[in-house]
């Protein structure tokens, strides 16, 4: 009975997956194109939402620089469960064209493992949409997000908080 009840939640969620309106790299331009009239991701229920508190998934739009990594993890940490990670672009996999740059994080999947990854530099909106539909399936089946069990993001976040204890005291911050 309970499973059926929860399945209903999964079904409902999969029809309105909201993304945190947060872009860290250039691939966000193709996300923008997805929002546009030609690809129109809203017909599948996708919507960007400014607050991580109301979001279902976060998009790693390509490049993650060293400076932005803690921000990404903090944003992810503030999301309510279930929280999925969707990564696009070569940079989000191994640094892509910036593989030898010291200010770019080249192992994002080890830190925050994505549930769906779309390759390309940048991937076309069609490819991203395909990945997003895959994402919908995952949400509907109520699979656990990979980042909940794997990834080193919790340790990194903890280190950042130790460096800056005032941040940990902020009321909006759960540190889960």
């Amino acid at each position: 009975m309970l499973t059926k009840f929860l399945d209903f939640f999964g079904w409902a969620r999969s029809h309105s997956p909201w993304m945190v309106h947060y872009c860290s790299g250039c691939c966000s331009l193709e996300i923008l194109a997805l929002m546009g009239p030609r690809f129109d991701w809203e017909r599948y229920g996708f919507l960007p939402v400014p607050s991580p508190r109301q979001a279902d998934f976060i998009v790693i739009t390509g490049l993650i620089s060293r400076k932005v990594l803690p921000v990404l993890l903090m944003t992810y940490d503030q999301m309510p469960r279930p929280r999925y990670v969707f990564a696009i672009g070569a940079c989000a996999f191994d640094g892509g064209p910036y593989y030898d740059s010291t200010s770019v994080v080249t192992n994002v999947p080890e830190i925050l493992p994505p549930d769906v990854f779309v390759a390309g530099c940048p991937p076309t909106p069609e490819a991203i949409l395909d990945g997003l539909l895959e994402m919908k399936k995952i949400i509907r089946e109520r699979r656990e997000a990979r980042a909940e069990k794997e990834g080193t993001w919790r340790e990194i976040l903890k280190k950042e908080l130790e460096k800056n204890p005032l941040l940990a005291k902020q009321p909006f911050f759960v540190g889960g």
Binding site: Y99, D100, T102, T106
Partner: peptide
């Protein structure tokens, strides 16, 4: 020039 970027992992 003395600084050489090397492949790295965080």
């Amino acid at each position: 020039k003395a600084y050489v970027p090397e492949p790295h992992r965080d």
